[in-house]
Design a protein around this nucleic acid. Structure first.
Lengths: 226, 226
DNA sequence: GTCTATATCATGATAGAC
DNA sequence: GTCTATCATGATATAGAC
């Protein structure tokens, strides 16, 4: 059952609910968003969320799944193709990082994949405390994360696997902050308003890639015990 | 009105409320934590939160302020002392990064400053959607962030200020993920249980510092337009 | 200062008409 | 499939006794 990706004008009630929920969960978080807000914004009846998605939790999972299935399939395709072409030779770290994190950032410039709304939602969702969200994300990411960890280990044979795992974690955090737009510390004050979204996204991608690769390839910390 | 930092055994009701709220906000987030849960865990009456802190929002602000005031004062003291000793010469980037992010990580090993509980709460709080939290954080961080941005600009004169600001943002994200312990993707599966908290914190600090400095000093992205 | 009791409201979910 | 009406619950906050 392929989930539709577009939301082009006049869609069915379920799609309108997904679109409204995506936006509201992004803006207010899962807990602070009520099903009443969702049904009101989607212009459907109050009972529609439970009819189509069973519960508020089911709605949240459907919102995430619609985009994550596509994103992680894309990530796997890119890695598969590159590894096939390399015939067993390790890939360049910059390529691996671009496939995983660049694919996510490029989603933001494409409205048919959720655009910035889903980007920001995802950045926030990784730190949502609700247990069912962690469980759901873990299952959605299990395959792709294992594949990418292995690819990075082959690409950087001098870096211990434990270090790779941590640096992957750090890269994820930096990326989450980069796309969430949650700048509660008002660090980013000099937005250029004249630039369009495409240009901003491209510059952000270049900036983030430099940072991530710098961190990934940094000298190993001198360990006092191990 | 100096806020007490310790919670050593038999404290007043307000301190017990702060301790319980810190733990519950960390575990469930702001929205999913009710004042009933707080008062029950603190073993005080249901009306006590409103009596001592005015509202649930007031409680959240008090929880954050108790630790952030101390943390940011410490950060400013360290930077002041180093800049005074340097007599106008730029500081080493590693020193600046350690003062800002290392001070936070070292809090985790000290129970009297909230220990890991506050660390994780703070990592999550940066992405809380509630507007009053963003506003509060912005005011708490305004001074210290400006001072550290300027110090980094002097330390890295070849890096444009705009780039410094973004990389500061990325470092914050990586650090937030490092301390939140929210590993919804189950990347970090190989926790060494035999090691104590002190050793783990020290290793994490060394790992994070390598990553942050690598990202901070990475080659600049080639910009196509600017 | 501290507590009990309660006011007021919004929530998630469902039953059952059409 | 879609809607109205409503239930049961739990939320924040406060009034007023002690």
């Amino acid at each position: 059952m392929g989930q539709p990706l577009s939301s082009s004008g006049n869609d069915g009630p379920d799609i309108r609910i997904l679109d409204a929920a995506e936006r509201l969960f992004m803006e207010h978080g899962y807990e602070a968003t009520s099903t009443r807000m969702v049904t009101r914004d989607a212009a459907v009846n109050l009972a529609a969320v439970n009819y189509y998605f069973g519960s508020k939790e089911g709605l949240m999972q459907a919102v995430l799944r619609r985009r994550l299935d596509w994103l992680n399939r894309e990530r796997l395709h890119l890695l598969d193709a590159a590894e096939t072409e390399a015939r067993g030779a390790p890939l360049k770290p910059s390529l691996i990082v671009d496939y995983f994190f660049g694919t996510l950032l490029r989603m933001g410039a494409r409205p048919e994949t959720g655009g910035q709304t889903f980007q920001r939602l995802l950045g926030r969702t990784h730190t949502e405390p609700a247990a069912f969200i962690s469980t759901f994300l873990a299952s959605e990411y299990a395959d792709v994360v294992n594949r990418y960890k292995s690819a990075l280990c082959r690409a950087l044979p001098d870096v211990p696997r434990e270090e790779i795992v941590w640096r992957f974690h750090f890269m994820l955090g930096a990326t989450a902050y980069a796309i969430t737009g949650t700048d509660s510390l008002q660090l980013i004050t000099d937005w250029k308003m004249e630039e369009d979204v495409q240009v901003q996204a491209q510059k952000l991608l270049a900036r983030l890639m430099s940072f991530l690769l710098g961190g990934l390839r940094a000298p190993l910390p001198q360990s006092r015990s191990a």
